[in-house]
């Protein structure tokens, strides 16, 4: 079981960057690019900063530009967590 789930990410995104009125963070959004969900690089910086602190993982500087979708970010964080474990 993953230590970091899509639901965890959605909760964090809501908290860090709100939710767009026209985009509901429900259903199958795992592969929808962050940009299409209305989250810009600033929102991702806030969210990845949160994840780095709360999950005690170190994320590289370019994570917000190299990762495009929630699924990719979840996988990336889990990989980091596995490696740290």
């Amino acid at each position: 079981m993953s230590a970091f789930t899509l639901n965890d990410l959605i909760t964090i995104m809501r908290r860090c960057a709100g939710e767009l009125d026209e985009v509901q963070l429900t259903g199958d959004i795992a592969d929808v690019p962050f940009q299409d969900l209305g989250y810009d690089s600033l929102a991702l910086l806030e969210a990845t900063g949160w994840i780095a602190r709360e999950y005690a993982v170190s994320l590289p500087d370019d994570v917000v530009t190299s990762i495009e979708t929630p699924a990719e970010l979840v996988a990336f964080v889990n990989e980091k967590l596995d490696r740290a474990a």
Binding site: R14, R15, C16, A17, G18, E19, L20, D21, G38, L42, A43, E46
Partner: peptide, 8 residues
């Protein structure tokens, strides 16, 4: 205001 604006 849209919720997107509130955290910032």
């Amino acid at each position: 205001l849209p919720s997107r604006l509130l955290p910032q």
